[in-house]
């Protein structure tokens, strides 16, 4: 099951991985590329949307979505925003330094079950990090999917993640992308301005509701409004896939922190269908 757990290891054993490359994506968000020291670990046995737990001795552990797709082996990528003690320590590391990884955890997007479907991928802010895994999966297996729309929102032009990559993918016809910022403070933003839901009119007439699956990831506040739009488009509730963020300490259903109602986000999530969680009162 797990990429980092081998026969005989217990479930908290971590595997050392070396930083191969890093790149600043925005002022506070950085791209990291890792390679496991143990060559026998093959980084392909996971689904987009699953996450790994990273450990830095002396600092602690933190949860990050795997940002590379299972179709690209030999390395594993993350995107990290600097928000606190762990992420600050991670940002101080240099190429060649080691971190310790365990995982993958949770239930991700079941891409194989989406074969032949239209996809609307909706991302807000940091949500683009896990959804990058979905987008690159689509790029590598484009023939498996029908139309693919990507709606990406960010606070400002400087906060937009992977802008060049997305535009390049759109130019190659892999996705139809629509970018938006809440507020253009530069005066040079060539695309749409407004919250991500204001992008919907650009695709509405081409959405075939019974053939479409929506994939959402973004800040908690975004879900309510995006789901309203999707329901207006008559996308079935069980075809609205969303990833939820909760505090997590173990990733194995034991520490209790990620509970929503009777579910553990680290086991049954972070990807849920809207149908599954619609009645849970603590959702957002």
């Amino acid at each position: 099951m797990a990429i980092t757990t081998r026969e005989g290891d217990h479930s908290y054993v971590t595997q050392p991985a070396k930083i191969l490359a890093m790149k600043d994506l925005t002022e506070d968000t950085r791209y990291f590329k890792f390679k496991f020291l143990d060559e026998s670990i093959v980084e392909e046995n996971y689904k987009p949307g699953q996450f790994a737990i990273m450990s830095l001795p002396g600092v602690g552990e933190a949860v990050f979505s795997i940002s590379s797709p299972p179709t690209r082996t030999d390395f594993i990528e993350f995107g990290v925003r600097k928000v606190g003690s762990f992420t600050e320590a991670l940002f101080k590391l240099k190429v060649g330094d080691l971190v310790h990884l365990r995982g993958p955890y949770g239930d991700g997007f079941n891409m194989e079950s989406l074969r032949g479907r239209d996809l609307i991928i909706i991302s807000g802010g940091l949500g683009a990090i896990p959804l990058r895994s979905v987008l690159l999966y689509v790029e590598d297996r484009r023939e498996e999917f029908n139309q693919v729309f990507f709606l990406n929102g960010a606070r400002s032009p400087a906060d937009m993640l992977y802008r060049e990559d997305i535009i390049a993918m759109a130019q190659r016809g892999i996705i139809e992308s629509h970018l938006s910022v809440d507020k253009d403070d530069t005066g040079e933003w060539p695309y749409h301005e407004g919250v991500v839901t204001t992008l919907f009119p650009k695709i509405t007439d081409r959405v075939v509701s019974e053939k479409t699956t929506a994939i959402i990831c973004g800040p908690p506040i975004m879900y309510k409004y995006v789901i309203q739009e999707l329901l207006k488009l008559k996308i079935p509730k069980d075809q609205i896939l969303m990833t939820l963020e909760r505090r997590m300490k173990c990733g194995q259903g034991h520490c209790g922190h990620c509970a929503i109602g009777g579910r553990y986000t680290c086991l049954e999530g972070p990807v849920f269908t809207f149908y599954d969680v619609q009645h849970i009162k603590e959702l957002i």
């Binding site: 001795p57 002396g58 600092v59 602690g60 552990e61 300490k249 173990c250 034991h254 520490c255 209790g256 922190h257």
Partner: peptide, 17 residues
């Protein structure tokens, strides 16, 4: 329910989780 925390000793040379 449990939390996981790292502690570094006063000499900052070693520590534990």
């Amino acid at each position: 329910c449990f939390n996981v925390e790292d502690r570094i000793s006063m000499n900052t040379e070693d520590g534990f989780r």
